[in-house]
């Protein structure tokens, strides 16, 4: 792929920060998914923040892919937070009848990192029970 990077996946301690920089089509979305899940294993990450602020649209495929990523990451032992859903995108998702399932969301990157670092979760095995 040429031109500027479409996504970036940066490591920050135990966490990965994955930012989408532009509108992605379906196959790019799937590449992003595979890349991210692979990197979770490589960096032994415990948490992932996905920043979707630059996505123009979160349609059924986009939202579904995010859910899949979160589920795959969970199976690989990492917790996922989606941040940066724009108000108009949120409105479209609700109108469409979409949601992000049980994937936690946060307003922005700061909130997302705060969520991952919250003392209650502590990224222990009992985290999901404690959160639920």
């Amino acid at each position: 792929m040429t031109g500027p990077k479409l996504v970036s996946i940066l490591r920050q301690g135990d966490w990965l920060i994955a930012s989408i920089h532009t509108a992605l089509d379906d196959s790019q979305m799937l590449l992003f998914r595979n890349d991210l899940v692979e990197q979770i294993g490589r960096h032994r990450s415990r948490g992932v923040v996905i920043d979707v602020a630059a996505l123009d649209v979160l349609d059924s495929f986009g939202a579904n892919t995010l859910r899949t990523i979160a589920e795959m990451a969970r199976l690989r032992g990492a917790e996922t937070v989606i941040v940066g859903i724009q108000p108009d995108v949120a409105f479209a998702m609700v109108s469409l009848g979409m949601d992000t399932g049980d994937v936690p969301t946060a307003l922005d990157l700061e909130e997302g990192l705060a969520y991952l670092g919250r003392p209650t979760g502590a990224r222990s095995r009992g985290r999901r029970d404690a959160a639920g």
Binding site: V57, L58, D59, S60, Q86, D88, V89, F91, L96
Partner: peptide, 10 residues
């Protein structure tokens, strides 16, 4: 505009 774009996308 986002609603329209989402519908077109679908």
């Amino acid at each position: 505009l986002t609603l329209i774009a989402t519908a077109v996308s679908e």
